[in-house]
Amino acid sequence: MNTVIDAHNVSKVYNRETVPVYAINNVHLHIEKGEFAALVGPSGSGKTTLLNLIGGLDKPDTGSVFINELDITKLSANKLIDFRLKNIGFVFQSFNLIPVLTAKENVELIMQLQGIEKSVRDVRVQQLFRQIEMSDKMDVRPAQLSGGQQQRVAVARALASRPKFVLADEPTANLDSKSAFNLLDIMTKLNKEEHITFLFSTHDQRVIERARRIITLVDGRIVSDTAAVSTRHEKADV
């Protein structure tokens, strides 16, 4: 397997001048291609901060984050934006679609930013909407979609640029059970069939059950990193 994410000795400290608070404390993390890993832990344990550091949205105070062997902590702000565009897919907690664009345009935007031709974009968008089973909702604005549907579009958007991996921050936090399972089905299917690497933060038991690797954070430290003993979808596979 290839290492996609390699975080070395990463720390993030807030209030350094007054009372230092270690949001992330000396974390080492390796994620291989095709993993479906969950970052779990109580609120304030540093899950979102770690995802932000891995996603290049924030810089660590110490340590390095390598994505495909490139140290992204050394990149300038502009290069990081370009790097994120080409290499990382994001799914945020609240639905975060651009409300003035249709579902299709939201997905297409990323590809357009990448400079992909219209004909190629159209084929890819059709394919992604088939995968998230929303081909009939392509021309609908986010406000007319349910929360679950919006999150599925967000997943399609995250995959549009064919990223090295997808970071999802509490993707099911605002969804009802049916929508959450539906979203997880799509994510696990994409992971299994297209070997897309997923790293998501969650404290949702439904998501944890589907993860093949569970990394537990407490007070900014990884306290356990284990392959899941049994998961729902593995059970289903059996």
């Binding site: 502009n78 934006i81 994120r84 651009i98 409300p99 935007l109 990323i110 930013l113 958007r157 640029s161």
Partner: peptide, 16 residues
Amino acid sequence: TREIGMMVALGTNHVR
């Protein structure tokens, strides 16, 4: 603010 932050996070550069 959040929407613009999200756009930058997704890779929309400053020029755009």
